[in-house]
Amino acid sequence: MDVSRHGLEDIVTFIHAPMTAVPNDLKILNQELWYDSAKIATALQDEQKFDLIIVDGPFGGSTPFARYSAIPFLENRLSNTYGVFLDDAQREDELQISERWAQILKIKPQFMERYTYFRSNKSFDTLPFMISNF
């Protein structure tokens, strides 16, 4: 993707972090792989807190619970007001991931079509979902 063509070079960062053995503090059950967390941590060391996270990878068939590590890794990098989306929420692994993330974030997940959504504040809505009336 050519981010400069869209004028996004100041807000988009691409990080090459191949799949590797997941560290024990970021894994769940029999999960084996996740993105190289050391490379991601290095790339994010100067970044501010995140208010929106969309988790749509790694590919669910790459390892059991492939997407779980995102929140254990990013939890301390969340701003006070945030939204987190987990794609493919209807899959068995993602249902279990949602339960664990709810415990970590201390937030009840909300379900919207194919997504599980966590938000830190009732007034934090992300279009097109505007799910504050749930």
Rank of each mutant, 00 (worst) to 15 (best):
V3R: 06
L29D: 13
K27I: 00
L44D: 00
G7L: 03
T13R: 14
R5F: 08
D36S: 09
N24L: 11
A43C: 07
T13H: 08
I40L: 08
Q45G: 10
W34L: 00
W34I: 03
V3L: 11
I28M: 05
A41N: 10
L29T: 08
M19W: 13
I28N: 00
T42G: 11
V3N: 12
A41H: 07
G7R: 05
K39R: 11
T42M: 14
A38D: 12
I28R: 03
P23E: 04
A17F: 12
L26N: 05
K27F: 01
Y35T: 02
A21N: 14
V3H: 15
N24K: 14
S37N: 13
W34Q: 04
R5V: 04
K39V: 06
K39I: 02
E9H: 12
A17V: 03
K27W: 00
I40S: 02
L44I: 02
A21H: 15
T13C: 11
V3W: 06
E32Q: 15
T42D: 13
D10P: 02
I11P: 09
L44G: 00
L33E: 08
A38Y: 14
L29F: 14
T42C: 13
K39T: 01
D36H: 13
A17H: 01
Q31N: 05
R5N: 01
A38W: 14
L44M: 07
M19T: 07
L44A: 02
E9C: 07
E32W: 00
L44W: 02
D25R: 07
L33Y: 07
A17Q: 08
A41S: 08
I11E: 12
V22D: 00
N30G: 09
E32F: 06
I40E: 05
R5C: 10
I28K: 00
F14G: 10
V22E: 00
H16A: 11
K39G: 06
T13K: 13
L29W: 08
Q45E: 12
A43K: 04
K39F: 10
Y35A: 05
V12M: 11
H16E: 13
I15A: 03
N30A: 04
R5K: 09
T20C: 09
E9R: 10
E32A: 02
Y35M: 07
A17L: 12
Y35K: 03
Q45N: 11
P18N: 04
V12D: 10
M1K: 11
L8N: 12
I28H: 03
D2K: 07
Y35P: 01
D10N: 15
L29A: 15
G7K: 02
Q31I: 00
T20N: 10
V22R: 00
P18Q: 06
V22I: 08
P18C: 03
D36T: 07
V22N: 01
Y35L: 03
N24V: 09
A17E: 05
Q45R: 15
S4I: 09
A43M: 04
Q31G: 01
M1D: 14
A41L: 04
A21Y: 12
T20W: 02
T42F: 14
Q45K: 10
Q45I: 12
D36K: 06
S4D: 13
R5S: 04
L26F: 10
D25H: 10
A38V: 14
